[in-house]
Simulated scan of single mutants.
Amino acid sequence: MSPLDMLKKINAMAEFNRWCGIEVTVAEPGFVEIQMPWRPEVGQYSGFLHAGLIGTLIDTACGFAAGTVAGPNLLAANFSVNCLRPAVGQKFIARARVVKPGKAQVFTSCDLFAVDADGEKLVANGQTLLTVVQAG
């Protein structure tokens, strides 16, 4: 199964991801791109994407990127998010990459872009440390 097919299957099983409207658009070993459309339910009081959803997109993209090299049995051990500007757009694109793979932990990084008629703007970035969970 290709990395893209694997992640689309995993994404489809995650009810929260479906509620958010997250779609996996690119998946290669060590790299993932996901997208989510804007809708009022994901905004905060000023009409910007809620910081919780910013964290969701970064965490999800990083986890998926790690999954392309370590398999699907991962848990976030730590993640950090830097909100760089108000996240306003018609859709949001998170691009994550594996910084350092390992047998027990995978380090990842992600940039989040808001997309509107003027193109993409970087609105946040973050890093995630994921722990490989042994089956059984």
Rank of each mutant, 00 (worst) to 15 (best):
L130Y: 08
L130H: 05
C110I: 06
N125D: 12
F107I: 11
G52F: 15
A70Y: 05
N78E: 15
C110L: 06
K121W: 04
T131V: 12
Q90M: 13
V123M: 08
G71I: 05
C110N: 08
S109I: 07
A77Q: 12
L57G: 03
C83F: 07
R85P: 03
F92R: 13
V115L: 09
K103C: 03
A104D: 14
P72V: 02
A66F: 06
T56D: 08
R97Y: 09
N125P: 06
A61H: 12
C62F: 03
G55I: 10
A104K: 15
Q90D: 15
C83V: 14
N82C: 05
S109T: 13
G63A: 08
R95S: 08
I58A: 04
A96N: 04
Q90I: 07
Q90E: 15
V69L: 15
T56M: 13
V132A: 07
A76G: 15
G67Y: 03
A117K: 11
R95H: 04
V88A: 12
A76P: 09
F64L: 03
D111Y: 11
P101H: 14
G89P: 06
C62H: 03
G119E: 03
K100L: 09
V115T: 11
Q105A: 14
K100Q: 14
F92S: 04
D59M: 02
L122I: 05
A124Q: 06
G52C: 12
F107T: 12
D116P: 10
G126L: 00
L57P: 02
C110S: 11
V115M: 10
V115Y: 05
T108E: 04
A61S: 15
P86V: 00
F92Y: 15
L130I: 00
F113D: 05
D116I: 04
A65W: 00
A66Y: 02
A87L: 02
A70P: 03
R95W: 04
E120C: 01
A70C: 04
A104E: 14
C83P: 01
L53E: 09
F107N: 10
V115R: 10
F113P: 09
N82V: 04
Q90P: 06
A61N: 13
V88T: 14
V98T: 01
A87M: 02
T68P: 09
A94P: 03
A87G: 14
V123P: 06
V133Q: 13
L129E: 11
C110V: 07
G67L: 02
I58F: 08
T68H: 08
S109P: 06
L130S: 08
G67M: 06
F92Q: 06
K91T: 02
N73D: 11
A94W: 00
L53F: 14
G67R: 14
K91Y: 12
P101V: 03
S80H: 10
F79R: 10
A96C: 04
A96S: 04
V132N: 01
I93T: 05
P86T: 01
L53W: 10
V132D: 00
